[in-house]
Amino acid sequence: MGLVRHEASILLLQGKGLLAFLDGLSTNHVDGPCTTVFTTRAAKIIDVCDIVPVGEHVAIVGHAMNKNVLAAHLAERILGQSITITDISDLNDVFIDVGDSEIPPDATVHDSFFGKMFIVPIKHNWQATWAMEQWNEHRITNLIPYHGHEITDSHHPLACGLEPLVHPQKGCYVGQEVLTRMRSRGKQGHQLVVRPNPVEKPTTQGKERSLCIVRTQ
């Protein structure tokens, strides 16, 4: 078991009503630390993010490749609210722990959908103990989707294994109508599966098995 580096972006939100603001824009019920998905009106994924309250502020840990789109998505909806967004990605390293790794100094520990997450000040120069290939094998075994593989802007959360992050009973959020309709009609179109190799169009290629997203109807 080991520690893998998460190529993260971290946006720090400061202001009032932050959790309610994020709750209205994402699929999970956001009332404290959690993992949630920001989606477009068509329910396509913008980013899968960990919500980490930090004192009176809230850190949003997403993936680096989605940072600009996510920041724009949030900023557009601030309107008159007194909320500021600060990019603190360069100040911290983020790791996902699979197992029981030593907790780095000054780390913020968060229970993420992906595993135990450590957010560590960059000055500690903490290092991963796992390579991406090991992380991928772990994900294949446990059917865990990940950024750039299964989690892309061409999929909706139900199609790529993020169903636990779509709260079934919360109120309106961006993309909710589409996701609720898919669920109520039992038609989500695609689903994440693990298949023995060889696999046509794998999203994550493993040594013996791979992850892929297949059509369900």
Partner: peptide, 16 residues
Amino acid sequence: MDCGTCESATPLEVHR
């Protein structure tokens, strides 16, 4: 976590 609030992390410019 280093939240940058006591340092000079610049807030992102929000287009209004």
